[in-house]
Design a protein around this nucleic acid. Structure first.
Lengths: 336, 336
DNA sequence: AGCGTTATTGTAAACGTTTCCGTTATTGTA
DNA sequence: TACAATAACGGAAACGTTTACAATAACGCT
C-alpha cells in the first residue's frame, strides 16, 4: 500500500535520488560499491520502479495497443497469443481492445489507445466499407495492420497472400475434378475478403469454370454465420459439388448445417476453409484448408511496428507471406 | 507527431492551463462560455489528453492487468473477451499477459504489472504446487483470482463450484447406468482440479462405486494432453464404460484419440467434459459437459476487483457460481 | 458606502522518474 | 607542487497533468 519510491531509498541510503536512478539504470558513472549498496537496499525496502513516472520523462511507454475484432474466433486468439508473447520478449506489454466488429468502436478504442500513449498499435481491422476516417488516426501513432492494404491509403501491414491462397484452394478443388464450386464468403468490403473472393473468381476464369458466389450480409466470419448460410443453402435445391469458404470458422458452421441437413462431407459435397485454425485439425472436423502462418505473422507484425517506432518517417512497409495447402479429409476426388 | 498539450491550448486560448483542465474535466467552477470556447479549441487543435501524465497525479491508471495461462484455450480466450469488454464499459483497459502455464512467468508478469501501476489484477492461475510466493505479490495490488481458493492464504476469487460440478457429472453418468467411470484429469495440485477430482471421488463414495483415476503429469488441460492420455489409455486393455474429463479440451483430445483407436463415442464409451466451451456444441463433437457461466464470471470478477480497488482494506470476497449440466450426445444410457 | 459572498480565473506545488549540468574529490602528469 | 583530467555524486529542471490555494471581480445586502 504505502509504495516506496526512489526518493525513499535515496533518503535512507543517504544519497541523492539521481544516484539511485543511476544505480538502477546501470549507468557507468557510479561506483560499483554504492551501486551494490543501493541495489541491496532496493530489495530490502521492496522498491518497484514506477513505469508511469518513467514514461512521463522518457516519452514512451513500452506498450503496444492491439485492436482485434473478436477473441472468440480462434484465428484471432491464436494470433493474439503469439503477438503478446513475442512483444513481451521485446520489452513491450500489450493493451488489448476488442472492437466487436464495430467500426465506430474501432475508431474509439484507437483514440483511447493513443491517449494512453501507446508507442504503437497493431490492428486487425474488422473490415468495413472505408477506412479514410482512420487515416487521421494512424498519423498519430505508428500502426501496422494485420490484413492487406485498405483501399483508401498507404499503410504498414503484414498478411498472407489472400489472393494466392484462394487460387491454391480453387485449383486444388479443380484438380480433384470439381467443376461447380460454390464460394461462401463474408461481406466483401473487407479487403481481405475482397482479395480472397478475387482469387477464387480469377482462378475460375483461368480454368474456364463458372463461379458461384454466396455472400453473407455480415462482415464477421463466425461459425454462426456459416451455420446460417449453410442451413439456407442446403434447404434449397443445389448442385455444386464443392464449397469453398472464406474462413475456417465459416466452414465449420457450414459443416454443422450440413450435418443437420443430412448432407455428408465429403461424400455429398466437398468443403474447404481458409486459415487453418487449430480446431480444423480435429479428426471430427478434419478440414482441408489454406494455412496462414500465425506465428510468423505475429512476429513480423511486432518487428515491423518496432521498426516504425524507431523510424516513424520511413516508407510504409508491407509483408505478404505465402499461404500453403493443408490437405485433410473434407474434400474428395470426383469419380469419373 | 508534435503532440499538442494542455499548455499549448492554454496559450492560444489565453488562459491558464488550470482553466483548460477544468474545461475538460467538467468542473463546475468555470463559466459555460469559456468552457465552450476551450472545448472547441481543443477539437481544432487536435488535443488528446495524456493519460500517463494524468495517472501520475491522480495516482491510478484505470488499467487492470490480466494474467492468463494461455489464449489458445477457448475457455481462456472466451473469458478474456468478456473480461475486456466489460472492463472497458467500466472505464478500464486491460493489459493482458500470457503466463504460458509457467509459474515463474506468472510471478514475473505480476511484478511487471504492478510496476506498470495497474489498479488491480485479475489472475487465472495456471495451478501450481504452492502459491505462497504470490502472497507477497498480491499484497501490493488488489487482486482477484478466477479459480477457487489456493491452499495457502485467503484471497478474492470467483469461480464455478467445481466440486459440485463434478458431482453433477458423476451422478449424471451414474443415472445413465455407468458404474465404472474413469476420471481423466490434469495434475491435481491445481486447486481447481483438486476440487473437481474431489467432487468425483466423494460422489463415487456416496454412490458406492469404485473410482478410477488417471492423471496427466501436465498441469495444462489441453487437447494435446487429452490426446496423449487417451491414446495411451485406449492402447491398453480397459473396461470403463465412461470417461469423465476435467476439462472440455481434454475431452476433445480424448475424442480424437478414441477416433483414431477405433473406439466409438458414445457407443463404446461415454465421454463427458467440463467447461462448456463453444466448440463443444458442434454436432461433430456434441460433448455432454458441465457449464461454466463465462460471462457471469467475467462480470463478477471485474466488479469484485472494482470493489477491492475502492476499498482495499475490506475483507476478502468470494463468489462461487453454480454449474449446470449440458446434456448432449457424447454419453449413452447403458442398456440392461 | 462598506462588507461579505460567490463566481471565475490564475499560481504553483505535486506526482516519481530521468538527465543535464555543475561540484567536489581524487588521481595522473609534468 | 601545481594543474588538468577524471570519477563520483548532488541539484534542479523537465515530462503533462490535477488541484489546493490565492486572487480578483462582480454582486447583493444592510
Amino acid at each position: 500500500m504505502p509504495t516506496v519510491t526512489l526518493k525513499d531509498v535515496a533518503k535512507v541510503a543517504g544519497v541523492s535520488y539521481a544516484t539511485v536512478s543511476r544505480a538502477l539504470s546501470g549507468s557507468p558513472e557510479i561506483s560499483e560499491e554504492t551501486r551494490r549498496r543501493i541495489l541491496k537496499l532496493c530489495k530490502e525496502m521492496g522498491y518497484t520502479p514506477n513505469s508511469v513516472a518513467r514514461s512521463m520523462v522518457k516519452r514512451h511507454t513500452d506498450i503496444m495497443g492491439l485492436i482485434v475484432p473478436s477473441l472468440n474466433n480462434p484465428f484471432m486468439s491464436e494470433l493474439t497469443a503469439h503477438l503478446e508473447i513475442y512483444a513481451r520478449t521485446r520489452g513491450y506489454n500489450l493493451m488489448v481492445c476488442n472492437s466487436s466488429y464495430d467500426y465506430d468502436l474501432e475508431k474509439e478504442v484507437f483514440s483511447l489507445l493513443v491517449g494512453r500513449q501507446v508507442d504503437g498499435i497493431i490492428m486487425i481491422p474488422a473490415g468495413h466499407e472505408s477506412y479514410e476516417p482512420l487515416n487521421a488516426l494512424t498519423s498519430q501513432v505508428p500502426t501496422v495492420f494485420i490484413s492487406e492494404n485498405m483501399k483508401d491509403y498507404p499503410e504498414n501491414y503484414v498478411s498472407v497472400d489472400n489472393h494466392r491462397g484462394m487460387q491454391i484452394a480453387t485449383e486444388y478443388l479443380y484438380s480433384l475434378g470439381h467443376r461447380s464450386i460454390l464460394y461462401f464468403g463474408a461481406r466483401s468490403d473487407s479487403k481481405t475478403h475482397q482479395l480472397r473472393l478475387d482469387g477464387y473468381l480469377s482462378t475460375c476464369e483461368k480454368l474456364s469454370i463458372e463461379p458461384h458466389v454466396l455472400r453473407s450480409s455480415y462482415t464477421r466470419s463466425s461459425r454462426e454465420v456459416g451455420y446460417a448460410m449453410g442451413g439456407e443453402y442446403f434447404s434449397r435445391p443445389h448442385q455444386e459439388t464443392a464449397i469453398l469458404c472464406a474462413a475456417d470458422m465459416l466452414a465449420i458452421g457450414v459443416m454443422q448445417a450440413a450435418f443437420e441437413a443430412g448432407v455428408r462431407i465429403p461424400k455429398d459435397v466437398s468443403l474447404m476453409g481458409f486459415d487453418n485454425i487449430s480446431f480444423s485439425a480435429l479428426p471430427q472436423i478434419d478440414l482441408t484448408t489454406v494455412n496462414q502462418p500465425f506465428q510468423q505473422m505475429a512476429i513480423a507484425a511486432v518487428d515491423m511496428l518496432l521498426e516504425r517506432i524507431k523510424n516513424p518517417a520511413a516508407a510504409h512497409a508491407k509483408l505478404i507471406l505465402p499461404p500453403s495447402l493443408i490437405e485433410r479429409k473434407s474434400c474428395r476426388a470426383l469419380g469419373k
